[in-house]
């Protein structure tokens, strides 16, 4: 069994915090893992992505092949669409935030992005910033998105991801852990509803 995940966003949005929790949970569960990151010049407000591969078998390539990704997770709606050539036609999910990050003059109309997203059969689009604000933890938007991913990530149990959140945020104190868990659960509930 394998799960190939593309994490997408804009430099500075913090896609790696999601990868870190999934990675920690995967290691704990004894899965094989490879995670290709982008560093350097591309980070400065440009598009960024990370290829995260989980498998019960040894993994060869650090990169996911075209048409091979089981999930695209994106903190930004246009960035989710950037990687659709990598999405599996058979069973690929797009899990994306709906709040656009507009730092270019030719950013498309939101209606065009929404219409484009609607073309794909398995999409969960959530305004994770709004959900995070609603539960009074505005800085946990990434964990809301992770919760939504948990709804389709059958290789990892939700509880393993919760343990991952506890481990990763432990040094920041119990309050931060609890806030992030609440955000995770809110995202998970919302995604299950939308699925």
């Amino acid at each position: 069994m394998k799960k190939d995940i593309i994490l997408a966003g804009v430099g500075g949005q913090g896609i790696l915090s999601i990868a870190t929790v999934i990675g920690s949970a995967a290691l704990e569960q004894g899965l094989h893992l490879k995670q290709a990151e982008v560093h350097g010049m591309s980070q400065r407000g440009g598009d960024v992505q990370s290829n995260l591969r989980l498998s019960s078998e040894p993994i060869h390539s650090d990169l996911i092949p075209r048409g091979g990704a089981d999930v695209i997770v994106s903190l930004e709606p246009m960035e989710a669409l950037r990687y659709v050539p990598f999405l599996s036609k058979e069973n690929g999910w797009i899990i994306t935030n709906t709040t656009p990050f507009v730092n270019i003059p030719n950013y498309p109309e939101m209606s065009a992005i929404e219409a484009e997203l609607a073309k794909y059969p398995r999409v969960i689009a959530i305004d994770v910033d709004a959900v995070a604000k609603e539960i009074l933890s505005p800085r946990s938007a990434n964990m809301v998105l992770l919760g939504a991913v948990a709804a389709v990530l059958d290789i990892l149990e939700a509880d393993k991801l919760r343990d991952g959140i506890r481990r990763i945020f432990a040094r920041k104190g119990d309050a931060v852990v609890e806030t992030n868990l609440k955000a995770f659960d809110a995202g998970l509930a919302m995604a299950r509803e939308k699925r």
Binding site: M41, G45, D47, V84, P85, L87, K89, E90, I104, I113
Partner: peptide, 20 residues
């Protein structure tokens, strides 16, 4: 043979790196 894949989305605009 290549895996079956979607074509690139035409809505997507380039987002080059920029000074902060």
């Amino acid at each position: 043979p290549a895996l079956e894949a979607y074509p690139a989305s035409e809505v997507v605009a380039p987002r080059p790196p920029a000074l902060c």
